[in-house]
Design a protein around this nucleic acid. Structure first.
Lengths: 200, 200
DNA sequence: GTGGTTTAATAACGATCGTTATGGAAATGA
DNA sequence: TCATTTCCATAACGATCGTTATTAAACCAC
């Protein structure tokens, strides 16, 4: 019983996510959030909890709505294809929306006040989870002979994510999609092949 | 005429720089700044101007005190040495101080509120200046036959800086120096050589 | 209808933000 | 020694921060 909710929770969450994507957790104020969602503050609190909880919901939504290319990539047959798929999709996503460039996982909270430390840590964990998936995939590639015996899956995963993080920073700085794709291509040129003499 | 300043301006600036390095422009409050510098608010204002001006002074100081390895790198004989010097020094700097990891040029302001947009733009320009120096150095390397004719200096510079930005993000997330060095090594692993078949 | 329950909107909460007026102490030059 | 100048420190400024009472409106069951 009782009065029904008038606004669309999912739609409000999408709008809030875009605000965080653009301004980060601390840079986004409730004034921004109410304007973007069209929902007044108390309604946001009743629907999502406080700002940190709202951000975590937004991050989860970002993951499922925009980062689907990662599990997609992991299913590709070769490690090189995996990396190419990730890098080119990252270049695309980071430049697709002029109003919120870069990556929420980076923009969200990099260096923050003490109050926002839990959010910063949540993003660190979020990125670490992606890196672990990639590392496991490279372990498999090594076992399959798709990567040389000398390859270090953990380092390779860190390398690929370093590239995506760098591209995210550059996208937020206004780099074009073409420029990011060129960076991705350069990164791919260093990729070790099964029979090669790679050092790592 | 008049009383003399009691605190050391340079020392206060160093302390303020470390606060910005750790928490970024918006994450650093005047409470943080006065505590770190031991200087009360009005004295900071009279010595440096407002918060934005203080940050710009801190950024300039960061440049001259910690980024000297970049002009140093540019003077090395080969492009590969240039890149190696930059990447390994970045790995070192980003992990040297446990209390302010990463890079001020990245931590300072990535995604911020509207009020801090000028500072964010200043950091974009700051990074772009470094990238331009590197691009010019690669132009020279190309002219000298140190890089293949097919090499794209602008792309290579963007690639190298993408790596440094990615390492800065990872350092802020707690990655060890050794891990960042491994990422640097991977990035260097197939640097285009003069007689090679590089695609870019 | 009517009562009970949930949502919506206005407005205010205390705290902190960056910034500055104020008053007095300290150091200078005459 | 005195007048002047500059700096230091306390405290307050208006604005905004995230958060929440409070009150009015809309719904469902009875």
């Amino acid at each position: 019983m009782g009065r029904h909710r008038e606004f669309d929770v999912e739609r409000a969450l999408d709008a809030a996510m875009c605000v965080f994507w653009r301004k980060g957790f601390e840079g986004a104020s409730y004034a921004d959030l109410t304007e973007a969602t069209g929902v007044e503050r108390p309604a946001l609190y009743s629907a999502f909890g406080n700002k940190e909880a709202l951000f975590r919901r937004a991050l989860a939504r970002y993951d499922e709505r925009y980062l689907g290319y990662i599990p997609e990539a992991l299913r590709l047959p070769t490690s090189r294809q995996v990396v190419a798929h990730i890098l080119y999709n990252a270049a695309d996503l980071n430049t697709r929306y002029p109003d919120h460039k870069g990556c929420l996982g980076i923009n969200g909270a990099l260096a923050v006040s003490d109050d926002a430390e839990p959010v910063r840590q949540a993003l660190i964990d979020f990125r670490a989870a992606g890196q672990a998936l990639l590392r496991d995939r490279f372990e498999r590639a090594k076992a399959e002979g798709d990567l040389p015996e000398t390859a270090n899956p953990d380092t390779l995963a860190a390398f690929v994510l370093a590239i995506t993080h760098g591209m995210a920073v550059q996208a937020k700085a206004g780099f074009s999609r073409e420029k990011l794709e060129a960076v991705a291509e350069q990164a791919l040129s260093t990729w070790p092949e099964a029979g090669a003499k790679s050092a790592t």
